[in-house]
Design a protein around this nucleic acid. Structure first.
Length: 970
RNA sequence: GGCCGAGUGGCGGAAUUGGCAGACGCUCAGGAUUUAAAAUCCUGUGUCCGAUAGGACGUGCGGGUUCGAGUCCCGCCUCGGCUACCA
């Protein structure tokens, strides 16, 4: 494959074209398919990118977000981030760093399971097929991964350690005082629990583990007979079949991520991520401070007694039966609470509801159970609710406030109950308006812009800002902030309330009723009758992994129980020390495997340990992590959480896993122009058309119109809009859309590589624009960079020769000063831009280099060699080929990166613009190191300036040496 | 509704700290080469006025700061992404 003959066998089509020419022999033109295959084989044979176990010298860990190996293969979005990291890695290897750059697959997940159900084949089969295809595609792009470290989350040898980490979570409790996860054996157990015996102690421990069982709501679809993942539920109906989905409580594994909420938020300060992503994470964690307050529900006449008893007993840790506990961030508005709301799932619903209201409340709650949290919030316009018939006493003044059930209050946040202050909360205001509940203003906004004070005070408008207290008894006139403090103290003193912190972040629902995921390494103890005793234990480390059982049938069985429950008895009922157990049959969510894969890459084949401690210490943290913004919140938060637990338990040495994070932008489809036509084929402008809920396009009068795709030459630009070229009054919609199968604008990397080569694809994706920007695809842009590589080739290769040989202009000569200046300017710019991930401008600089040297009759060989090294990270295949042609015998992957000699860049004379009132009027050439005064004088002496300044009075002169001269005239 | 990001030629985009707007590429036009085409090479390509020289305008819109604003400040508009009653 290697050697000259390759160039005599261009592809068949090219050969046929050539035969039509009178040229008697094929010429050595740039042929990506041949040189790319050649160098990929070379790298593989020579293990060019195999990374040493331990770094030698400075280390660099560069990580890509690993893909889910779908059946569709790679999308052009994947190579964007992967090329960026590859350039960085190749660049830094040449700068002498020890680079770790691995790749793997996030291979558990729904599509494989769906495929399995449909075809009744094991999901492992299709997964392995897809992985093979992804690997082929990634290799075809020439990425410098150390493939010997590749892994898939579905590898038994990998998920053994995912299970092991789960057991670490299971074995850990969170010490709030120390803000640290500690071994469960160190959990202090209260004396009263100990007194109840061992079972009570075990239960107490289980309640404090970071991995614990709890009843949580799942999406149960009766018609499909299965539990669905959130992403399979759309608008409260199943994605498949469009059946209703109900939320039912089911015993679920939860991970106590909320315990780490503060640290997850705080430690964001220490990482180099964009402010946008940090903010997304902070908002997701959603820390808020306020107070929990108890409202007495035992009747107005008992209220004073209750208050008395609270004054002595203090605020109980758990609310008693005769109280309703709420969480509020605005305890200062307590006097304005005119009703209360509890969530439909609140445990007190039944006990609070009066007989008259029972039927209405029951019906309401049932209806609510069919809606997801998301769906409940969808029809934001009107709020619904139903009165329970009960009242509570406002702790500050004993006022009787009605208690309602409404689904705008969520059971999963705070206490699942609120005090409603319609005057100062938009949602409560809306609800109060709907049900004609009293609105009492208790915050005086004062006179401020955009607030109608009178309306607020009259209860006709809601105001949620800060102000001075009114209608609040002794507190009248107190500023909001101060009021908050003092009432919190007062409530605490009286045992009526306590300061509280809440998070939007919920504990992580970690189990799925699915087959294609990691089994939990958990056993449930059974009694003699085969019933669960409630005692659970982890599988012993030496018994890991718990592999997935073989299942004959993957179809749902109609009970809300996971598919693994259909496994045979041998798998399902292990016996240990004579005791019979039932295995946990839930599986872990897809997120699990991606929570720690970056650690396994460091030591992927270790069978004794999830990662060797010395290697972990040497390689961590990840220095650069690049991936899509769709993982900005969940994946990164989950992975950080696991990492912190591992840190607390001494298994890793860094607090944060990912030091620097960069999100690549989305690649959109090619620009599309659309206009519309009515049934008479008359053109209708885009500004007259709207898209209905049914997806059809209509004119304002309701008549339907058809979208018509236009070609570029049918369209003209008029002002800042597009119009039809021959009907300038018809406006055309010109935009790029997300790539999607249904739109038919998906670009397949295989086809680009076939037509232009991997180097062109890599280069184009980097040349499109800034890495982080959203940018539209353009086929002619791909062709453009291919043209650049063609010019690079011809700059060095004589493509008119009979065989592969250097261009006659390439000579073993000393470069002149100008050639050196061009080279070193290029080195400087490409180095700086590559460091900053400004790949698009680095490529532009290389194009300038080629434009210059293509015109030169004499091209010094050593200058071209340096250039080829600069090109190598971007277009490694052509670079290797040219490097070889220029005389090298081995890969350039570890050649030292060219150094910029700044002394060669010094200009002796520079051109300085001369402005009058900020507008450039002339230019002069001066010595680069000219003094300020001399520069001004030179500007005044300029012939053109003399004319222009002749009749005017110069009132000021701005002179910036090396930059410009600006005359301010009257 | 909230948050984040972005608006620069026909298109993608460039422009260290406020200092020559439009680098580089695409597209298009003209030319060279060719029997012809493709490929290649050369020239031009923001808008308007002008035969040319040259001039005026110009970074979404309206204001402001400055000798000087694509860049900074205030107020809007449009587009994209994320998010969705968190008390």
């Amino acid at each position: 494959m290697v050697g000259t003959p390759a160039y005599f066998f261009p592809p068949f089509a090219a050969l046929r074209a050539l035969s039509l020419q009178r040229v008697p022999y094929p010429m050595p033109r740039y042929n990506p398919s041949q040189i790319e295959a050649k160098w990929q084989a070379y790298w593989e044979e020579n293990q060019t990118f195999k990374t040493a176990e331990m770094p030698e010298g400075e280390k660099l860990y560069v990580l890509d977000m690993f893909p889910y190996p779908s059946g569709n293969g790679l999308h052009v979005g994947h190579p964007e981030g992967y090329t960026a990291t590859d350039i960085t890695c190749r660049f830094e290897r040449m700068r002498g760093k020890s680079v770790l750059h691995p790749m793997g697959y996030d291979a558990f997940g729904l599509p494989a399971e769906e495929h399995a159900i449909k075809t009744n084949t094991p999901p492992r089969e299709s997964t392995e097929k897809n992985i093979a295809n992804f690997t082929r595609q990634l290799k075809m792009l020439g990425f410098s991964y150390d493939w010997s470290r590749s892994l898939a989350t579905t590898d038994v040898g990998y998920f053994k350690w995912t299970q092991w980490i789960f057991l670490v979570l299971f074995d850990t409790w969170f010490d709030t005082e120390k803000q640290q996860g500690r071994p469960i054996s160190e959990l202090p157990i209260p004396a009263e629990v100990t007194a109840e015996g061992e079972v009570a102690e075990a239960k107490y421990r289980d309640e404090h583990r970071l991995a614990y069982l709890d009843d949580a709501l799942v999406n149960w679809c009766t018609d499909l007979g299965t539990v669905l993942a959130n992403e399979e539920v759309i608008d409260g109906r199943s994605e498949r079949g469009n059946y209703p989905v109900q939320r039912i409580p089911l015993r679920q594994w939860m991970l106590r991520i909320t315990a780490y909420a503060d640290r997850l938020e705080h430690d964001l300060d220490d990482v180099n991520w964009s402010d946008g992503i940090k903010k997304l994470q902070r908002d997701w964690i959603g820390r808020s401070t306020g107070a929990e307050v108890d409202f007495f529900t035992g009747g107005a006449e008992q209220f004073e007694d209750w208050k008395q008893s609270r004054a002595t007993s203090g605020f109980p840790a758990k609310p008693t039966n005769d109280t309703l506990r709420v969480y509020t961030t605005r305890p200062d508005t307590l006097y304005g609470a005119t009703y209360m709301v509890i969530a439909p799932e609140h445990p007190a619903v039944e006990s609070l509801t009066s007989d008259e209201q029972a039927a209405a409340v029951k019906a309401y709650c049932e209806k609510a159970s069919f809606k997801s949290d998301r769906e409940r919030t969808e029809d934001t316009k009107s709020k619904t609710g139903v009165f329970t018939g009960a009242y509570a006493s406002n702790p500050v003044n004993g006022a009787q406030v009605p208690i309602w059930v409404a689904d705008y209050v969520l059971i999963s946040y705070g206490t699942g109950a609120i005090m409603a202050v319609p005057a100062h909360d938009e949602r409560d205001f809306e609800f109060a308006k709907e049900y004609e509940i009293e609105i009492i203003a208790v915050v005086d906004p004062g006179d401020r812009k955009g607030v109608d004070r009178e309306e607020v005070l009259a209860g006709n408008r809601c105001f949620h800002g800060l102000g001075l207290a009114i209608n609040s008894g002794q507190y009248d006139g107190t500023p909001t902030a101060e009021f908050k403090e003092s009432i919190r103290e007062s409530l605490a003193r009286q045992g009526l309330g306590a300061s509280a912190v809440n998070y939007k972040l919920r504990d992580w629902l970690f189990s799925r009723q699915r087959f294609w995921g990691e089994p939990f390494p958990i056993l449930h103890e059974l009694d003699e009758d085969g019933n669960a005793t409630g005692v659970i234990r982890g599988v012993a480390e030496e018994d890991l992994p718990v592999d997935l059982p073989y299942l004959e049938d993957y179809k749902p069985h109609g009970r809300p129980e996971p598919p693994l429950a259909k496994a045979d008895d041998q798998w399902l009922y292990p016996v240990i020390d004579g005791k019979r157990y039932r295995r946990e049959t839930n599986t872990m969510p897809q997120w699990a495997g991606s929570c720690w894969y970056y650690l396994r890459y460091i030591d992927p084949h270790n069978e004794d340990c999830f990662v060797d401690p010395a290697r972990e210490q040497a390689w961590m943290p990840v220095d650069l992590y690049i991936g899509g913004a769709e993982h900005a919140v969940l994946h990164l938060l989950y992975a950080r959480f696991w990492h912190k637990v591992l840190y607390d338990r001494g298994h890793v040495t860094t607090k944060e896993p990912f030091q620097r994070l960069v999100n690549q932008g989305m690649i959109l489809g090619e620009m599309e122009f659309t206009a519309y036509q009515d049934e008479m084929q008359n053109w209708v402008g885009v500004n007259q058309v709207s898209r209905g809920d049914d997806g059809l396009f209509r004119k304002e009068d309701g008549s339907e119109v058809q979208p018509v795709k236009l070609t570029e030459d049918q369209v003209a630009k008029k002002g800042d809009t597009f119009v039809l070229a021959d009907h300038a009054e018809v406006r055309v919609d010109g935009r790029s859309f997300k790539m999607s199968k249904s739109r038919g604008n998906v670009i397949n990397p295989d086809e680009i590589v076939d037509g232009y080569g991997a180097d062109s694809l890599r280069l184009y994706e980097m040349f499109m624009g800034p890495l982080t920007a959203t940018k539209p695809w353009s086929m002619s842009g791909v062709n453009g960079v291919k043209g650049f590589l063609d010019r690079v080739w011809r700059m060095i290769v004589n493509d008119r020769a009979e065989s592969l040989e250097l261009n006659e202009a390439v000579a073993d000569v000393e470069a002149d000063a100008e050639a050196l200046k061009v080279l070193h300017k290029t080195i400087q710019a490409v180095t700086r831009d590559t460091e900053n991930l400004d790949f698009n401008t680095a490529i532009a600089r290389m194009m300038e280099f080629v434009n210059y040297f293509t015109k030169q009759e004499s091209r010094p060989k050593n200058v071209l060699q340096s250039f080829v090294l600069l090109l190598a990270p971007y277009a490694p295949h052509i670079a290797e080929e040219l490097w070889e042609l220029l005389g090298a015998e081995t890969t350039l992957a570890y050649e030292p990166w060219p150094e910029c000699d700044e002394s060669l860049l010094v200009e002796s004379t520079i051109e300085i613009p001369i402005q009058i009132k900020g507008k450039v009027k002339s230019r002069i050439s001066v010595a680069a190191d000219i003094s300020k005064d001399d520069l001004e004088q030179a500007a005044r002496d300029d012939e053109k300036m003399q004319q222009l300044l002749a009749d005017s009075e110069v009132i000021k002169v701005i002179v910036v040496p090396g930059r410009l001269v600006n005359f301010v005239i009257r």
